[in-house]
Simulated assay, not measured.
Amino acid sequence: MTHPTTPAKKPFEEDFALPGDGDDDADAVRRPAGPGESSRASRHWWDRNADEYQGDHGAFLGDDGFVWGPEGLDEADARLLGDPASLTGRRVLEIGAGAAQCSRWLAGRGALPVALDISFRQLQHSRRIDADHIAAGRAAAAVPAVQADAAVLPFADGSFDLACSAYGAVPFSADSGRLMREVHRVLRPGGRWVFSVTHPIRWAFPDEPGPEGLTALSSYFDRRPYVEQDEQGRAVYVEHHRTVGDRVRELVAAGFRLLDLVEPEWPEGLEQEWGGWSPLRGRLLPGTAVFVSVRD
């Protein structure tokens, strides 16, 4: 699972990560970035930062937990993929899986998950966790893992019953409409596609946890991606913005029917700050949007 952020300073990843870590000299701009540039930047960034990311945030995510965002919305309670009892034997594709924490949770409910991520280093962390679990008798086998771009899924039509993504892949894709069509292609009729992203309204505000993060400074309708680039102008991190309406239209155009749009409220008792996510902002502004759709 990987988690991105909103623009205006360092991104957060996701997942909760701080894109830009390790790239202190990167210049942050808003400019066009196509599929090839975006894909390369994401692969290299997550390969460079996977160790630090898992070290910093692995405890929150858990080895086999399934949270949809920094508000801590847990799939065990939310049941956005359906009744956990109904997951047994279902083939599930986790997109932008990171170290496959969500896939491991699904496997624990009897599902047959496949974890896909663009970063080889993230998937190596998945293998590390699998090895620890197998050695401790907590699992019988590793979660199947595939390195690939989510906009070019290497699976046959109708291969999966469900697809999910917790802050992974979708905001990093320059052609998220194509990503939606690919997910539709590999799902069987009636299959759910559930994904979470930074709530689009956050793109209008600075990525700051304090009061300065409560004043809108950018246009919500500015769809230029957030790009961190090196001295030669090459992108080292790219994140793409779509409005809520854009996301709905992408889903519908791909052949999905929107069932729900979940905006988790900041829970009482959660005082942790994480990048631009904080109790102050979370109690006033939505931070996560979870799109729940079905392939008819």
Rank of each mutant, 00 (worst) to 15 (best):
A235C: 08
T2V: 06
G287C: 03
I118G: 08
E250K: 00
G269Y: 03
D207G: 05
H125Q: 13
S218E: 14
G276A: 06
S165L: 09
F195P: 07
Q272C: 00
S39A: 15
C164I: 14
R257A: 05
R30G: 08
R104E: 05
L179M: 06
G58N: 06
E52Y: 14
H44P: 01
G36L: 05
V92R: 11
R90A: 06
F12V: 13
H3K: 08
A216T: 06
W277Y: 09
G69K: 05
S218M: 13
V244Y: 00
E212R: 05
A148M: 11
T6K: 07
G20T: 14
A107F: 07
Y53S: 04
H44Q: 15
A142G: 10
V262K: 00
P144T: 02
P113S: 12
E228F: 13
L112V: 06
G20P: 10
G158W: 02
A131C: 11
G36H: 05
P32T: 01
D132E: 14
V227E: 07
D74K: 09
E13Q: 09
V152I: 11
R104K: 02
R43V: 15
D77Y: 03
S159I: 07
G275F: 04
E250P: 05
G55S: 04
S278T: 03
G276P: 03
G255P: 02
F291E: 11
A97C: 08
R91L: 01
I134V: 15
D222A: 04
V290C: 04
E271H: 08
C164V: 14
W68C: 02
T198L: 15
G190Y: 09
R178E: 12
T5E: 03
E75P: 06
D175L: 03
P113G: 11
G276K: 00
V114N: 04
F291H: 15
L214G: 04
A41Y: 08
R79G: 13
F221Q: 03
V67K: 08
D25I: 01
A142W: 12
H3M: 12
